[in-house]
Amino acid sequence: EIGNMVHNGRAELAAERGFIKEVRILQLNIPHSRNVAKYEDYINSHYKMQDESMDHWEEWKRTPAMDKVVADILKENHIG
C-alpha cells in the first residue's frame, strides 16, 4: 500500500497487536504527482486514520479506477 509515515507506524502497531501478520516497509521518495493527489483524495474521503487506541486494522480497499492510479504511480516511479 502507498502510505505515509503515520500510516506505516499504525501498520507496525497493528502487527504488534496481532491485527495483521507482518509489515514490510519500503521507503521511497515519491513526488507529489497528479496521480498521488488523486489517490490521497480517494483515501482521505473513504477512510479515517486510526489513532493509537486502534482496536482493529482496516484494509484500504480500492476501486478498479484507484487500482489503475496506484499502478500509474508505480510506473511513473519505475517501481515493480
Results as ranks from 00 to 15, higher is better:
His46Asp: 03
Glu16Ser: 07
Gln50His: 02
Ile20Cys: 05
Asp51Arg: 11
Glu1Trp: 05
Ile20Phe: 07
Pro31Gln: 02
Ile73Glu: 01
Thr63Pro: 00
Lys38Arg: 13
Met5Val: 13
Ala37His: 02
Leu28Trp: 04
Glu76Tyr: 09
His7Trp: 05
Leu13Ala: 07
Leu26Glu: 09
Asp51Gln: 07
Asp41Pro: 00
Glu58Lys: 13
Lys48Asn: 13
Trp57Cys: 03
Asn8Cys: 11
Arg34Thr: 13
Gly18Ser: 00
Ile25Asp: 10
Pro31Cys: 02
Ser45Leu: 02
Glu12Ser: 02
Ile79Val: 13
Leu28Ile: 00
Met49His: 12
His32Val: 06
Pro31Asp: 04
Arg34Asn: 15
Glu12Tyr: 09
Arg62Leu: 15
Met66Val: 12
Ile73Ser: 05
Trp60Ala: 15
Glu1Ile: 09
Val69Ile: 15
Val70Asn: 08
Val23Gln: 03
Phe19Thr: 05
Lys48Gly: 07
Asn8Glu: 13
Glu59Trp: 11
Ile2Phe: 10
Val70Asp: 08
Asn29Arg: 04
Ala37Ile: 07
Tyr39Trp: 10
Lys48Cys: 09
Glu58Ala: 03
Ala37Arg: 12
Asp51Tyr: 06
Val6Phe: 14
Lys75Gln: 13
Gln50Val: 03
Lys48Thr: 15
Ser45Ile: 03
Ile79Lys: 00
Asp51Pro: 06
Lys61Pro: 05
Ile30Arg: 07
Ala14Gln: 09
Ala14Asn: 09
Val36Asn: 04
Ile2Met: 07
Trp60Phe: 12
Glu1Tyr: 09
Ala71Ile: 04
His7Ile: 10
His78Leu: 05
Leu13Trp: 04
Asn35Ala: 03
Ser45Met: 01
Trp60Lys: 15
Arg62Gln: 09
His78Asn: 14
Asp51Val: 06
Lys38Gln: 14
Asn35Phe: 03
Trp60Leu: 14
Gln27Ile: 14
Gln50Tyr: 01
Ile79Leu: 10
Val36Pro: 05
Met5Asn: 07
Val70Met: 15
Lys61Cys: 04
Met5Lys: 15
Val6Glu: 09
Arg34Leu: 14
Leu26Trp: 03
Asn35Ile: 00
Glu16Cys: 02
Leu13Pro: 01
His46Ile: 00
His32Glu: 11
Leu26Ser: 10
Arg17Ala: 08
Thr63Ala: 05
Phe19Gly: 05
Pro64Ala: 05
Ile79Gln: 02
Ala15Asp: 02
Ile43Tyr: 06
Val6Ser: 11
Glu1Val: 04
